[in-house]
Computed example of a mutant assay.
Amino acid sequence: MRPGARVALYYAPQADDPLWHLAADWLGRDPATGAPRPQPELPDIADVTADPRTYGFHATLKPPMRLVEGAAWTDVLDAAAEVAAGIPAFDLPGLSVQNLDGFLALRETTPSPELQALADACVIGLDALRAPPGEAELARRRRNGLRPAQEAMLARWGYPYVFATWFFHMTLTRRLTPAEHAVYRPEAEAFFATALTRPRRVDDISLFVQDQTGAPFTLAERIPLRG
Results as ranks from 00 to 15, higher is better:
Q39Y: 11
N99V: 11
C122E: 01
G125T: 11
R200S: 14
A195M: 11
G125Q: 10
E221V: 10
P63F: 05
L104G: 10
L42Q: 08
L100R: 14
L42P: 06
G102P: 07
D203W: 05
D16F: 06
R142M: 12
D78P: 01
L100T: 13
P93E: 02
A182S: 15
D78K: 10
P216D: 09
R143N: 11
Y55H: 12
W166E: 02
A12Y: 01
K62G: 00
P186C: 12
R226N: 14
P216A: 10
A105R: 03
Y161R: 12
G158W: 00
P178K: 13
Y55L: 09
Q116N: 02
A220F: 01
R29D: 08
P3E: 04
R37Q: 15
P186G: 13
L42A: 11
L225H: 08
A71L: 04
V76Q: 03
R185I: 09
D75T: 09
L92M: 15
W73Q: 03
G28D: 09
P31C: 12
L42T: 08
L154K: 04
A50K: 14
G28K: 08
T49Q: 06
T171N: 03
F208E: 01
R6L: 01
L22F: 02
A50G: 05
W20E: 14
T165E: 15
P199I: 11
F103C: 13
D51N: 10
P52W: 06
A139L: 12
R141A: 09
Y161T: 04
L172F: 07
L19F: 05
T49S: 13
V162M: 13
T197G: 09
R141Q: 14
A220P: 00
A164M: 03
G214I: 03
P133D: 01
P18K: 13
I205N: 06
A81F: 05
T109V: 10
L138C: 12
F208W: 04
R175I: 14
Q116C: 02
P64C: 08
P113A: 12
A117V: 01
W73F: 04
G28S: 11
T33R: 13
D75E: 11
V97L: 07
Y10T: 07
L100Q: 15
N99R: 12
G28T: 10
D44K: 14
G214P: 02
A8C: 00
D44A: 14
A149K: 13
V7M: 09
W166L: 05
D203K: 06
P3K: 01
A117G: 04
A190F: 07
T165C: 08
T110L: 06
Q39T: 13
A24I: 04
T109S: 09
R143W: 03
L61T: 08
R156Y: 00
P64M: 05
M1W: 06
L154H: 04
P113C: 09
I223H: 10
G158F: 00
